[in-house]
Computed example of a mutant assay.
Amino acid sequence: MATDITRALKYSVILHLAADGALTAVVPAERIRALQVPSQIRWPFIRYGSPITTGFEATCWSGASNRVTLHAFAETSNAGAGEDIALDICALIVDRMKIFAPADLRLIENEWLSTDIVRDGDEADRWHAFSQFTITAVPA
């Protein structure tokens, strides 16, 4: 039977991103969050999206395959256009996930699938970009 690693993977991804100096130079570590964020969080920020998890089993391996979405929220500021900032944050996320190596999980697959961007609500200067990954892992 497969093993659900949804929670462990969520925290491993958040800790990985929050510990990355290149990323935290743009988004402070305290603004890299799980699914729930404070209602008055400062922008820019990153949120781990609702994962889609399915079982994974192979010879001697029991884990899960996860569709993970990492969201970047940005607004127009002195740093530039909100849409460009959001896309730059997602590009950093994609780059930094290339070296994702959690201590408590053994990665089988870690693939970037796509990045998309939309305006956040009716605000012309607020943007929401999101990158999707397939991450398959088993407990270490």
Rank of each mutant, 00 (worst) to 15 (best):
E123R: 11
D104M: 09
L113H: 10
D120F: 15
D122K: 12
V118D: 14
T136E: 00
R106E: 09
I117Y: 04
F133H: 11
L107W: 04
T115C: 11
L107P: 04
E123D: 14
L113C: 11
T115P: 03
L105Y: 00
S131H: 01
D120A: 15
L113D: 12
D116T: 15
L113W: 07
T136H: 02
T136M: 02
F130P: 07
D104E: 10
W127A: 06
L105N: 03
R106N: 08
F133Y: 10
L105A: 00
D116K: 14
S114E: 13
R119I: 09
Q132R: 15
L105I: 03
A124V: 09
W112V: 04
W127Q: 07
F130L: 12
I108N: 03
W127C: 09
R119D: 02
R126Y: 10
T134E: 05
R119T: 08
E109W: 03
S114Y: 04
T115Y: 04
I135Q: 00
R106Y: 03
W112K: 05
W112F: 11
W112G: 03
L113V: 15
E111D: 13
D120N: 14
E109Q: 13
A124R: 11
A137C: 04
D104S: 09
E111T: 13
T115K: 06
D120M: 15
S131Q: 01
E109H: 04
I108R: 05
F130G: 02
V118N: 11
L105T: 04
A124K: 10
I135C: 00
A137E: 01
F130D: 06
W127L: 09
E109M: 11
R119S: 07
S114K: 08
F133G: 10
L107S: 07
L113T: 13
I117R: 03
G121K: 10
R126N: 15
T134R: 06
L105P: 02
D120S: 15
I108Y: 04
T115R: 10
D104Q: 07
E111W: 07
A137S: 01
V118C: 09
G121I: 13
W112T: 05
V118Q: 15
S131R: 05
W127T: 09
D116F: 15
I108D: 00
I117K: 07
D116A: 15
N110S: 10
V118P: 01
S114H: 01
S114L: 08
V118T: 14
T115A: 09
A129N: 01
S114M: 04
E123N: 15
R119E: 08
A124N: 12
V118A: 14
D122I: 13
L107G: 02
L107Y: 06
I135W: 02
T136Y: 03
I135T: 00
A124E: 12
I135D: 01
H128N: 10
A124M: 07
D122S: 14
G121F: 15
